[in-house]
Amino acid sequence: MRLAGRLGGAAVSLLMVAVLGFFLFRVVPGDPVVSMTRGRPTTAAMQAELRTQFGLDRPLVEQFWHYFTGLLRGDMGTSFTFRRPVADVILERLGPTLLLVGTSTLIAVVLGLWLGVRAAWRRDSGFDRATTGVSLTLWAVPTFWLGMLLMMATGDLFPSRGMRDTDTAPDFVSQALDVGHHLVLPSLTLVAVVCAEYVLVMRSSLLEEMHAPYLTTARAKGLRDDLVRRRHAVPNAVLPAITLVFLRFGLVVAGAITTETVFSWPGLGLLFYDALTGPDYFLLQGLLVVTAGAVVVMNLLADVLHGVLDPRVKVV
């Protein structure tokens, strides 16, 4: 029943994402066509044609029905700047983003949780103060600025634009090495900022558990300090921390947008930037629906995972 409830909740959320995506770009002051064509020489006739082409001259309900049924088929309209279906454009940029976000999140989670556990266990030690201080500072650092600083500081050590060089040999190993080389700076930027958040989350989660009576029980049994931590404190603290990590997945998305913009990483983040500078409303709308939908799905996964891992939560 619980699982069905979760699935239902996620379905409602996805529906809300779709509705939000539609109205956010419709119920706005001004004419979308006017603002999209701003700065380009257009006549009233051309604008009217665009309106018809995008269906903007229809009643709102009809537009929504058209949009919604399209969405179900995977049709998100046509990009104004690319003159191609939004879905195709997004699909083609998915890979680089998955690579960047996946690598960075993995590193950030492992590093963040480990540092957080160590800091909390030796609360107020030099290590704790240093870790917390650095994390708080990194949390205050704007991602894009950090990226630009790293770029400036490393000079020519690492490539700072794009994902691969045009003159790399076509074989797999050279290509992979080249992408890896390009990946260093963007992923470092993303890890630094995201990891800081995870350290703080994990640290406070473990600190909450530090005075739990069952740890006294474990000590009384004669367990060594590190076993008390490993077997009893951490398993209890890690589960809520992981949930929080997933809940703040939006943070990673935000980080990816600015990081990709700074490093011209050809993923969804850079596409976002291109779409908003247009502005290309259909592309923006598609990106919003896709990212928000992805976050909703991630959350559902986290929920289910939490239910499987944590015996206190029942998923039947």
Binding site: L24, G250, V253, L288, A292
Partner: peptide, 8 residues
């Protein structure tokens, strides 16, 4: 809460 605030 779940949606990425910055994207919105």
């Amino acid at each position: 809460l779940v949606l990425p605030a910055l994207v919105l």
